[in-house]
């Protein structure tokens, strides 16, 4: 399944890119599993995703907990807690 990954703030800096297209194997079923899978692929991803308590996610621009099923996700964003306003 082709998924566009988006990264923001320090997650973007640690991964080293703001976006990447990844081909996610069928057995990867949640956002958390997707992070595990990406972390196994590179040290930069592993460093960015090490502290799960500081990560937030969105599937197709809707904010979701990390244990949310991916379903037919086309865009998954990973970012720190927000600090606007």
């Amino acid at each position: 399944m082709a998924v566009e990954m988006l990264y923001f703030a320090w997650v973007r800096e640690r991964v080293g890119t703001g976006s990447e297209l990844v081909d996610v194997p069928g057995e990867i079923d949640t956002v958390a599993a997707l992070l595990d899978w990406l972390a196994r692929r590179s040290e930069r991803h592993a460093a960015a995703f090490a502290d799960r308590g500081r990560l937030r996610a969105a599937i197709d621009q809707h904010f979701v907990p990390l244990d949310t099923p991916l379903g037919r996700a086309r865009e998954v964003a990973i970012f720190p807690p927000v600090t606007g306003g």
């Binding site: 923001f8 703030a9 969105a58 964003a77 970012f79 720190p80 927000v82 600090t83 606007g84 306003g85």
Partner: peptide, 11 residues
Amino acid sequence: RLKTDAPFWKR
């Protein structure tokens, strides 16, 4: 609610 619900990040 903007402070907690809208995706902005300050550096």
